[in-house]
Simulated assay, not measured.
Amino acid sequence: MENLKIWIRKNGSTAILTVLFIILLVNKDEKAWLMRQAASTGILNSSISESKEGRHVSAKVSYTGLMLKNEDGTMIDVSALQNKVIFINFWASWCPPCRAEFPSVQKLYDRYRNNPEMVFLTVNLDDNMSLGKSYLKEKSFTVPFLTPAGNIPDILYSGSLPTTVVLDKKGEIRLHHKGLADYSKDSFYKQIDELLNEKS
């Protein structure tokens, strides 16, 4: 026992850091907080690409099969959302990087939710959708709760969570980002504004 006290006195800071590290590894919210701090630097972010004329036609064809449904069971056909900028985020409540970026997704939604030229499709991929609903309610997030109503085309989602896709008004994929990012940066808002100002 005396040896343990001596070891703690000599290595107290190491012991505290080890305990904190274990907590971060085990607790989803703490892990998400740590990831959010990394994302806030902007290092992990992708940029919206320049338009590649002509490419939007083939890209449209490959995601026409994406059908979603909202909480009321209303179906949404993504290919029918013409002349709008579409922000699609695939997420799950058990995914720490999803939890880490979700506050920034909510801020983006709050900023553009009343813009008739922008659509938000936040697609929950929990096996049990009540877990996703509970997470949004617990954190007071108000983004749309959508679930897939069929297969998701590979061009949009290939298994990595979170995945974010931004489509321009022509239906061209202008951002495809796998992994954590911060969507509440002024630089990202500026890119969204540029897309909104483009002619369809």
Rank of each mutant, 00 (worst) to 15 (best):
M1K: 06
K5M: 07
K5C: 08
R9G: 11
R9V: 09
N11Q: 12
S13C: 13
S13R: 07
S13V: 08
T14H: 11
A15Q: 11
I16K: 10
L17A: 13
L17N: 15
T18S: 15
V19Y: 14
L20V: 14
F21L: 14
I22V: 14
I23R: 04
I23P: 15
K28Q: 07
K28F: 06
D29M: 10
E30R: 08
K31E: 13
A32W: 11
W33E: 05
L34T: 06
L34V: 06
M35P: 07
Q37F: 13
A38T: 13
A38S: 07
T41C: 09
I43P: 15
L44T: 12
L44R: 04
N45W: 15
S46M: 05
S46R: 10
S47Q: 13
S49A: 10
S49G: 06
S51N: 11
S51R: 06
K52D: 04
K52Y: 04
E53R: 04
R55A: 08
S58P: 01
A59M: 10
V61A: 12
V61Q: 08
S62C: 01
S62V: 02
S62M: 07
Y63R: 02
M67D: 15
N70E: 08
N70R: 01
G73E: 14
I76M: 03
D77L: 08
A80C: 02
A80T: 12
N89K: 06
W91K: 11
S93G: 06
S93L: 07
C95T: 06
P96E: 07
P96Y: 09
P97R: 04
P97E: 06
R99C: 05
A100D: 10
A100E: 13
A100S: 09
F102S: 03
P103L: 08
P103S: 11
S104A: 14
V105T: 15
L108P: 09
L108Y: 10
D110Q: 13
D110G: 07
Y112W: 11
N115C: 09
M118R: 07
M118A: 13
V123N: 12
L125G: 05
D126S: 14
D127M: 05
N128R: 10
N128W: 12
M129E: 12
L131M: 13
L131W: 15
K133W: 05
V143N: 06
T147I: 10
P148M: 08
P148E: 09
G150V: 08
P153D: 08
P153E: 06
I155G: 03
L156Q: 02
S158R: 07
L161I: 03
P162Q: 09
P162W: 05
T163G: 02
K169T: 00
G171A: 01
G171S: 00
E172I: 01
I173F: 01
I173Q: 00
I173N: 03
R174G: 04
R174Y: 10
R174V: 15
L175F: 04
H176P: 01
H176C: 00
H176V: 00
H177R: 02
K178I: 02
G179M: 04
G179C: 00
A181D: 03
D182F: 01
D182R: 01
Y183F: 14
Y183L: 05
D186M: 04
F188I: 11
K190E: 13
Q191N: 06
I192M: 12
I192K: 04
D193R: 03
L195G: 12
N197C: 00
E198H: 03
K199E: 00
S200L: 00
